[in-house]
């Protein structure tokens, strides 16, 4: 590069800045329609988990309700408050906060903007829900129960496994539901339980899966976020049709197509879409917790389940599903409820 071009480069830089500061105002706002905002947690929009599924639901509001939509990704925990504030100041009809990490940010922003509406996924804010917030949670135990039924009916060794992320009330819901399901479908089967105490450590997940399979376990269900990737890495190396993994949150069969029995999906997209729709139709009453289970189609089986699961097993699973929906079976959520369930 010669001297003249350096000078030219510098000049154009100055020009860009000058134009940048002097240009005229034209924001990209929608004229008058229905507007929806979404703030991700630090996982980002393409996290292959709840942020991504939530965004799918928001995109549906664009296609089916004609909403103007926008998402902001949070890079750090400190970004939650300003990102929510941006949407609130922008006058969005509803702003979604995806993930329980917003537990502390949502009440703060909601009290500053009493006229704005917010939604939070996966947290009930400890029961203290402000009047302008709708908190969405899922009955993970119900979906996990069906996974337990599936595992109990599939196992040949009568040993099944569960890998949890960090031991917390949320993940205990998965464990309790799953163990109850196994017990209901196959009382002879035992469940081995292990917690990785992490949501990201795939290596830990793999070593836990390895020792379980080596101990004669042939079906493992995980509720452990990124740790679960290790489970799929391990099951792939084992004999087809003998060792199985069950995924969580969204259909994870792509991770090990020949070894994935099913996935317990959480329909974050359905929840976000339905509540946004209710708001648009004026039917939504904020300030409440919305709990979605099998009945509301908030949790369920992945569509690819039929690929490896025979029809008679699927029929059994469906029978249990109906029993849960009409209240014949009450799925336990905690250790104590589980113990009562098992002794019945």
């Amino acid at each position: 590069m010669n001297k003249t071009s350096w000078v030219a480069l510098l000049l154009s830089a100055v020009l860009v800045l000058a134009v940048g500061c002097g240009g005229q105002q034209n924001g990209g706002k929608a004229d008058s329609g229905f507007t929806v905002g979404m703030v991700t947690d630090t996982g980002g929009l393409n996290d292959e988990s709840f942020n991504q599924t939530a965004w799918e639901g928001i995109k549906r509001t664009k296609n089916e309700l004609g909403a103007e939509i926008k998402a902001l990704e949070s890079k750090r925990d400190e970004d939650y408050v300003p990102n929510l504030t941006k949407f609130a100041r922008d006058g969005r009809d509803i702003t979604w906060a995806v993930g329980f990490k917003f537990e502390k940010a949502i009440p703060e922003v909601a009290s500053q903007f009493p006229n704005a509406k917010f939604g939070i996924v996966d947290s009930n804010l400890g029961g203290k829900i402000p009047d302008n917030v709708t908190a969405v949670t899922f009955k993970e135990e119900e979906g996990s129960f069906l996974m337990g039924v599936l595992a109990g009916l599939t196992t040949k060794t009568n040993k099944v496994g569960f890998i949890g992320g960090i031991s917390s009330p949320l993940i205990k819901k998965f464990e309790a539901g799953y163990r109850a399901g196994v017990h209901a479908a196959n009382p002879k089967a035992t469940v081995q339980v292990a917690y990785a105490e992490s949501f990201t450590d795939a290596t830990k997940g793999r070593s836990l899966a390895q020792s379980m399979y080596n101990n004669g376990v042939d079906v493992i269900f995980h509720a452990a976020g990124g740790v679960g990737k290790g489970l799929f890495d391990e099951v792939k190396t084992r004999e087809k049709g003998k060792f199985w993994a069950i995924g969580v949150d969204m259909d994870q069969s792509a991770l090990a197509p020949d070894h994935t029995l099913s996935s317990m999906i959480k329909r974050v997209d359905v929840a976000v879409f339905e509540i946004t729709k209710e708001l648009k139709e004026g039917k939504l009453q904020p300030g409440k917790q919305v709990e979605l289970g099998l009945k509301e189609n908030g949790v369920g089986l992945a569509e690819t389940t039929s690929k490896h699961v025979p029809a008679d097993v699927l029929k059994k699973v469906d029978e249990f599903k109906q029993k849960i929906i009409n209240g014949e079976i009450k799925v336990p959520k905690t250790e104590e409820e589980l113990n009562q369930f098992l002794t019945k």
Partner: peptide
């Protein structure tokens, strides 16, 4: 801080 707004106003990734 402005980078976040840039994403908001102009759609440019952070």
């Amino acid at each position: 801080y402005g980078g976040g707004n840039m994403q908001f106003e102009a759609g440019v990734p952070f």
